[in-house]
Computed example of a mutant assay.
Amino acid sequence: MSDVSRPTTWPRPGSRTTQLLVGPANFAGQGRGWAAAARRLPDVDALSFQVATSTTLAEPADFVLDRVAFDDPGLARARESWVTSFTHVLVEAGRPVTGTQHGLDAAGDLAFLEDARVRVGMVAHGTDVRRPDRHLDAEPDSPFARMADDTVRLRQRHADRMAGLMTRRDWSFVSTPDLLLDVPTARWLPVVVDPARWSPQPWEPAPAGRPPRVVHVPSHRQVKGTALIEPAVLELARRGLIDYTPLHDVAWAEMPAVIASADIVLDQFALGGYGVAAVEAMASGRAVVGHVRPDVRAHVQAVTGRVLPVVQSRAADVADVLMELVQDRDRWLAVARQGAEFASCVHDGRLSAEVLRTFLLSRSTESLPPAPRP
C-alpha cells in the first residue's frame, strides 16, 4: 500500500514520450486502474495520485499525498512544477490537481495547465456531474426524490458547473455510461477491475434444500436504493426462500470473500447504470441483479458488441425477478458465466486503454473517433 506523503521530492514521470498523471480522487481505485490501462499503450508512462482524506486508504493510488501538503501554500510552486512535468493530466471528478491555490475545483487548474501546454482531460465519476433535474425525469426511483430540498439544490448547482466545464472541453470522459445523460459530449471510459483480485471463484448454484445466498453491499444506501428493495428481500428471507443478511461497512480486504460467498449479488436500483461493484461481482463469476436503463444497455452493446449481463429489475420487481432467477438453474448459470466473460473483456483495462489512445497519442484536438470494440 502506498504511504501517505508530505514530500520534499515528488515521483517523476517516466522517460517515455507521453507521461500521464491521473488524479486526485481515485474513487474505488479507478485512477490507479486507468493509469495502469494507459501504460498498455506504446510509449506511454502513467501515474495515479490521490489526496488522502483519512488514514485508512482502501485502494490507494500509485502516490498518496497528505491533505495538509496538498493545501500548503508553501508547496504551491512545487506542486505546480510537479504536475506540469507531465505531458497529459486526467482530472477526476472536477477536483483541483495542483492544490487549492487556483480554486476549490478544477476550473482554475484547467486554465493554468493549458497555459503550461499540458493536455488536459476530465473524467466524471458520478455525483460530480449527475444532475438531479435530468435524473428525476429519467428515473422514477431516483435518490434525489428522497433527499432534502437544500441538498438537491446544492447538488444541482455543483453538477451543472462540473458538467458545464466538461461539455466545453475537447477531452471529456465518464466512468459509467449512464452519465452520458449529463455530459452527452463525453466518451465512456470503462472502469477497471484487477483480474487477479476478482477472478472467477469456484461456485455452483445453491443445491436443493439450501436457499441461495443473496448479498447486497451498498456503498451508499440511499444512492443504491437499498431501502426500496430491502423489505421485499427480507420477506423472502423470512419465508426461507433465500438466505439474506444486510451488510454494510465491509472492509475492502474482505470484499472478495463476501462476494465469493454469494450466489446472487444485488447491485443498485435507483441510478439506472452499473459501476465498479457490479463489475467486481461479475468478474467473480456471480449473477448480478440491478436496474440498468435501456439507453445504457444499448450504449454498452453499441460500443462493445456485447449484451450487458446484469439481470434487469426495478426496485418494485426485485422479489419476482429473484424468484424467477432462482427457479431457472440454467439461466442462473448462464448469467454468471456471461458476467465473468463480460468483465474480463470490457473491464480488464484493454478497452479503457483504447478509449484513452486518441487523447494520449494524437497531437490534435480533433473529435474522438468511434469507440473501439474489445
Rank of each mutant, 00 (worst) to 15 (best):
D72V: 14
V89I: 03
A61W: 06
A61T: 11
E80Q: 15
R67C: 04
G126T: 08
A106L: 01
V91L: 15
V68G: 02
A93D: 06
W82M: 09
S81H: 01
F112C: 11
E92F: 07
F86C: 05
R67G: 02
G94V: 06
D133F: 05
L110R: 07
L110Q: 03
H88S: 04
V68E: 13
V97Q: 00
A116E: 12
R95C: 11
A78Q: 15
V129C: 08
V123D: 07
E114M: 15
H125A: 06
L90K: 05
V83W: 10
L90G: 01
D105K: 15
A107S: 12
V129D: 00
F70V: 11
R134E: 10
V123P: 02
E80V: 01
A61K: 01
L113Y: 10
L113V: 10
R79Y: 12
F86Q: 06
R119A: 02
L75S: 05
R117I: 02
A69H: 08
A107V: 10
F70A: 08
S81M: 10
D66H: 14
A78V: 09
D71Q: 10
G126A: 14
A107T: 12
H102S: 04
P60I: 11
R119C: 13
G99D: 01
E114T: 15
A76E: 06
L90R: 03
D128A: 13
D128E: 10
P96K: 03
D105I: 08
F63K: 08
P132K: 03
V89R: 01
V129N: 00
Q101S: 15
R117T: 14
L65Y: 04
F86A: 03
R79L: 02
P60A: 12
T100F: 14
R130M: 03
L113I: 10
E114R: 14
L110E: 00
R134K: 11
D109L: 12
A116Y: 05
G103D: 05
V89M: 08
R67M: 05
T100A: 03
A106T: 05
A93Q: 12
R77E: 14
F112L: 14
A76Q: 13
H125F: 12
M122E: 11
V89E: 05
V68F: 05
D105P: 10
R77A: 07
D105A: 15
F70Y: 15
H135G: 08
V83Y: 05
P73G: 10
S85P: 11
A111R: 13
V91R: 01
V68A: 12
F70W: 14
G126E: 04
V118L: 01
L110D: 02
P73Q: 15
S85E: 06
G74N: 08
R130I: 08
R95A: 15
R134S: 09
D66V: 08
A124C: 05
P60C: 07
T127W: 09
H102C: 01
T98D: 04
R134N: 15
A106N: 11
G103N: 10
G126P: 01
F112S: 02
F112P: 01
E80A: 13
F112T: 01
G103V: 10
L104I: 09
E114N: 12
D62C: 00
H88Y: 03
S81I: 08
V120A: 00
D72F: 09
H135E: 02
G126N: 04
